[in-house]
Amino acid sequence: MTGTASSPSRTDERIVEALPIGVNTFVWHSPITDETLHTTLEKIASWGYEGVEIATENLADWDPDRARQTLDSLGLRGVVGGVFGPGRELTCAAPGVIEETQGYVRGAIDLAARVGAPLVIGPMYTSVGRTWRMSPDERRTAITTLRESYRPLVDHAASRSVRLAIEPLNRYETSLLTTAEQVMDAIDPLPREVIGVNLDSYHMNIEEGDLGAAFDVVGDRLLHMQVCGNDRGAPGDDHIDWPAVRSGLERVGYRGMLGFESFTADNASIATAASIWRSFAPSQDDLARRALENLQRWRRPWNLG
């Protein structure tokens, strides 16, 4: 990653440590299991990763107490990734489906609290890949229902000292929330101390007309940042305007994780869901190490002045 912004002033006392770099378990596994999670945590820590996004397809896939012990022993930070597969809907669905999905999100919040993670992240609104046309009135109704679905989840998250970070996806994966502006509109009436935004460079590259402006729209409600190349490969080996991403993060005073998210083509279900038709490196380990190498060169202390 070249062309980064100029170095901050050494006299600025608000410079903080470099942002921690994490990686999503989807790079290797779908779904994650208790054993593969611990093997993965040990591996990424040995390479120099400082955090992990635990993609949680099913609430019983991994033991949060054991995971917390491993994270603590390795000095890793963690966030829980909400996975919205078929049938998980918080709007535009039957009441029973919405209630069941709320139960899943509550469970993810409880996992986060037990593992010591501050966030549940992801596209928490409708199932990934579900798209349909909406009139302006239908969209307003969908967003109203979504807000009502969020309210008890926000209360539950607040009671567990966990925050929710809602991720906009690209137009091929959803027709509901595809931009920073749309997510901000959906969550605007809800408590800013509990619910915010999870941006992802892959989706931003498709949907945002101006990467920098998207950060300005979100501001301090940006709770999590996922980074990968425009092709889902390693960030920095692609055409995304990384200086604009960096400047945007600095401008809004972002203090969270940089989470590298990609997927494996070796798993049929996840390859189809994420449209991963080819490998981005000789192995998934090589891909994760390349992403880490690029991100370590790119980051430096952030100027929050």
Results as ranks from 00 to 15, higher is better:
1 M>S: 07
3 G>K: 05
10 R>M: 08
11 T>G: 02
17 E>Q: 15
21 I>E: 03
23 V>C: 11
39 T>R: 14
43 K>S: 08
44 I>W: 12
45 A>W: 11
52 V>H: 07
53 E>K: 01
53 E>W: 03
59 L>A: 04
60 A>P: 01
64 P>M: 03
67 A>T: 02
70 T>S: 12
72 D>C: 05
85 G>P: 00
87 G>N: 09
102 Q>N: 13
103 G>S: 14
116 G>P: 04
120 V>W: 02
122 G>C: 14
126 T>M: 07
129 G>F: 01
129 G>R: 05
132 W>I: 04
146 L>Q: 13
150 Y>L: 07
152 P>N: 06
156 H>S: 07
156 H>R: 12
159 S>H: 11
159 S>R: 12
160 R>H: 15
163 R>V: 04
165 A>Y: 10
184 M>L: 13
184 M>R: 08
199 L>Y: 03
202 Y>F: 15
205 N>M: 08
208 E>C: 05
220 D>F: 03
221 R>I: 03
227 V>I: 14
228 C>V: 03
229 G>N: 02
229 G>E: 04
229 G>V: 05
230 N>A: 14
244 A>V: 10
250 E>L: 04
250 E>Q: 14
254 Y>Q: 11
257 M>Q: 15
257 M>W: 09
259 G>E: 06
263 F>M: 13
265 A>D: 13
266 D>S: 13
267 N>W: 01
268 A>Q: 12
272 T>E: 11
274 A>F: 00
276 I>E: 11
276 I>N: 04
277 W>I: 10
282 P>Q: 08
294 N>T: 00
296 Q>D: 10
299 R>V: 15
